[in-house]
Amino acid sequence: METYYRPEDLPRFPDMGQKAPELGKKFFEYYNAVFAEGALTEREKALIALSVAHAVQCPYCIHAFTQTCLEKGSNLDEMTEAVHVVTAIRGGASLVHGVQMLNIAQKLSM
């Protein structure tokens, strides 16, 4: 195997339903329902998915939701800001744990 991630594997996502069809069916029904227009628009949901895709660093998801965001009418300015949102959360999550460091250090230090 020359690489673990191959672009041509992305459309094979539904193949994961072959050996467990009932679970696959339930998952894909749920998946499609999640991304349907609801209280949030399909465009807004795609932007959320794009940012989460960067957080979980899934190349398939980044590829798929970049295209989906464009297809739903988003532009590169909006998509870049969405990636910054998740970057801020990830960075913030690291930084806020520094409070634990401070607490422990203060307890241990004279």
């Binding site: 992305l10 459309p11 094979r12 996502f13 539904p14 339903g17 894909f28 998946y31 499609n32 398939y60 998801c61 798929a64 939701f65 989906t68």
Partner: peptide, 13 residues
Amino acid sequence: MNTDCALQEKGES
């Protein structure tokens, strides 16, 4: 990811 029926019905070939 696109998981609509048309895609699911299609095989790799």
